[in-house]
Amino acid sequence: MLTIDKLNELGANTAEGLQRCLNDEGFYLGLVPSALEKARYEELDQRIKAKDLDGAFETAHALKGILANLSLTPLFDVVNEITELLRSKTDTDYSGLVDKMWEQWNKFAALL
């Protein structure tokens, strides 16, 4: 069950996210599942694995934006880190960061 309290427990800054939604909890909670759509994270994962750094950057950048707006902070932090590396086209081993991303995603997705 997705609630504000449970999101807070996972480290989301819901106060900030809610403020952007004019403190409309229902509206805010209604947006969160879209930000956790699994297919998009899988897309990022696959593009990184395929060394499609430009494509991966686009996906990461888009995810980063929505996670920031909803202030799902722990997930945002790791996606942000991936985005910045991709922006500079850093050819490195992303697997650790991708695992971390899935770890956070799983925590949030478990609430849905």
Binding site: D24, F27, S34, G65, N69
Partner: peptide, 13 residues
């Protein structure tokens, strides 16, 4: 904005 969430957020605001 290509992101539905962002469009919805701004619409709300």
């Amino acid at each position: 904005d290509d992101e539905l969430i962002n469009r919805k957020l701004l619409s709300q605001i």
